[in-house]
Simulated scan of single mutants.
Amino acid sequence: MIVGLGGGIASGKTEASTYLQEQYQFNMIDTDVLAREVVMPGQKAYQEIVSHFGNGILLADGSLDRSKLRELIFSDVAEKTWLESVTHPAIRSLMQEKIKAAPKNAVTLLVSPLLYESEQYKLCYRNILIIAPVKIRTQRAVSRDSSSVDIVNSIINQQMPDEQKLEIADFIITNDSTITAFHHKLDAIAQTLLELAKS
């Protein structure tokens, strides 16, 4: 049973997926991990990105400087569109391979920041949406990623508004309080999913 887990930047997706994996042994397909895999040195997408942006986009070890790349694409819509045209098909192909290989009698989380934007939610039996006020998400992202407020706001503005996602999601969690409260909300959803998996 594939269950989508989505939400905007710094909404709490990583905390939620880690908790559900550790507490309930849910399997996990994380598109952020897949996104790193498809741009590793030697991969086709990596070669195309380096050819396009030049060696200045690389770290000393030859891997992509993801922070620099993020700043480039979120300050230039055309570059963002180009990068997505290279990486998204590769990520989707790898994601579909992982979905086919997922255990049949267990819950598998498909964790994706673009679950709703890229219509990946259509591949899932149920979908979870994590939301939080923009002010809280901005503070979290700036603290976590050492990004500027402008970069974070640019990312938020380019993502689908929560209001649209609310119309699609089956389960909605507001993550604006304590970690304990967040975990309690996840527990309730996990129990429901486990019951659905049995039926």
Rank of each mutant, 00 (worst) to 15 (best):
K13F: 05
L129N: 02
G4P: 01
A35N: 06
Q159H: 10
M95A: 10
R36T: 00
Q164D: 14
V107A: 06
N55M: 05
P133T: 11
I136G: 09
M95G: 00
V152P: 08
H184Y: 15
Q96P: 00
L5W: 07
D61K: 11
Q191G: 05
A101W: 07
E48P: 03
Q25F: 12
R144P: 04
A190D: 07
G7A: 05
V134D: 13
V111H: 05
K104F: 08
A181G: 15
N55W: 01
V33R: 09
E22M: 11
C124L: 03
D76Y: 00
I131H: 04
F182N: 03
D32Q: 01
R70P: 06
K68A: 13
K165L: 00
H183E: 12
Q120N: 13
M40F: 09
L83I: 08
H183D: 10
H184C: 12
I155K: 03
Q96E: 14
V111I: 07
S112N: 07
Q164S: 10
K104S: 13
K122I: 04
R126Q: 11
V33Y: 11
Q25A: 13
S177L: 12
E167L: 15
E195G: 03
I49E: 01
T192A: 14
E195Q: 14
Q47S: 15
V111Y: 03
K98P: 04
V3C: 10
D30G: 04
K185Y: 03
I73F: 01
S67L: 14
A16F: 01
D176F: 11
E48N: 13
S51Y: 10
Q47V: 13
D65R: 08
L64I: 15
K198P: 04
L123G: 05
F74T: 08
